[in-house]
């Protein structure tokens, strides 16, 4: 492992180059077509939100990319080279790191031990605690992740801090692409902000980030692009700059009139009426 795990910028391709691209991805589970003809790409220095309703195929697509559940058909390219990725190990060897929703953290071990789990540094037979701690502090500092101490058990950290540690751990292998499956699902407002800040810092470092989320606010806040899946197909691609939340929701649900838009219209109508009423009394 190199001394500055995150300072391997020379290997990181310039912002905007395509890091990972999938074309014509098909995946079936028996009769269920979980993914059909999905194209997806991630470029350096961007955050792509992968959104869609329950059962749309988001997790299935992440599993294809992370090697945990390879596609039946389709091509998988890393920086324009066709690769075959059938295991998580192969994915990380090609620079694709995944933070699954269950964080896979050992609560009884401290932050340093968790970061270096399975790849501890040693001097002879003994663990090199000082060096591991130094790198941990350095890494957390580079990413402005704030923890009370790197020597307390993970169990005593907050949800947002745990999520941050899990993401930082994924970065130890110097990946080019990071896949985050619902990183803010269980978090409160402040902790969500913490994690989103971290996501932005990954982007600043020129990584490609795929963010799965059900939370439109998060997506609007941090993503550059959004890819909407519906029933296993790509239902829309948007640049966040020129899309509204309503448009995203409409694409996710796949209809112009539906429960969500009806409700939105109803609420809008009611608030318009209320404000009109208020104006009336004031006048």
């Amino acid at each position: 492992m190199s001394a500055d795990v995150l300072s391997t910028e020379p290997h990181t391709p310039p912002v905007g180059t395509t890091l990972l691209s999938l074309t014509g991805i098909q995946k079936r589970f028996g009769a269920v077509r979980a993914l059909s003809d999905v194209d997806f790409e991630v470029r350096a220095g961007e955050v792509v939100a992968l959104i869609g309703d329950n059962g749309a195929g988001k997790s299935t697509l992440v599993k294809v990319m992370s090697g945990a559940g390879p596609a039946d058909e389709g091509s998988y390219r890393i920086e324009d080279r066709e690769v075959s990725i059938h295991t998580p190990a192969a994915a990380s060897a090609h620079g694709v790191a995944t933070v699954f929703q269950d964080l896979a953290i050992c609560d009884n071990l401290d932050v340093v031990a968790n970061l270096f789990l399975g790849r501890e540094l040693t001097r002879g037979v003994a663990l090199d605690e000082a060096e591991m701690e130094r790198r941990t502090v350095e890494l957390l500092e580079q990413l402005s992740v704030k923890l009370p101490s790197v020597r307390i058990p993970m169990a005593s950290l907050s949800g947002g801090q745990r999520q941050s540690v899990a993401i930082v751990r994924a970065l130890l292998g110097s990946p080019k692409v990071v896949l985050l499956d619902e990183p803010t699902a269980a978090l409160g407002v402040a902790q969500t902000a913490q994690v989103l800040n971290l996501v932005e810092r990954l982007r600043e470092r020129g990584l490609g980030v795929v963010l799965i989320s059900h939370n439109m606010a998060d997506v609007m806040a941090v993503a550059d692009r959004a890819v909407v899946l519906r029933l296993g197909r790509v239902a829309g691609r948007f640049a966040m700059a020129d899309v509204s939340r309503e448009q995203l929701v409409a694409t996710i649900t796949g209809a112009d009139t539906n429960v969500v838009s009806e409700r939105a219209a109803r609420v809008a109508g009611r608030s318009a009426a209320t404000s009109a009423g208020t104006e009336g009394t004031q006048a």
Partner: peptide
């Protein structure tokens, strides 16, 4: 040692240990 650390890890969260 790494061996001992692995024992603690398995006792703490076997799935995390496996993935590591």
């Amino acid at each position: 040692t790494r061996y001992g650390r692995a024992i603690f890890a398995v006792g703490g969260n076997i799935e995390a240990a496996r993935r590591a």
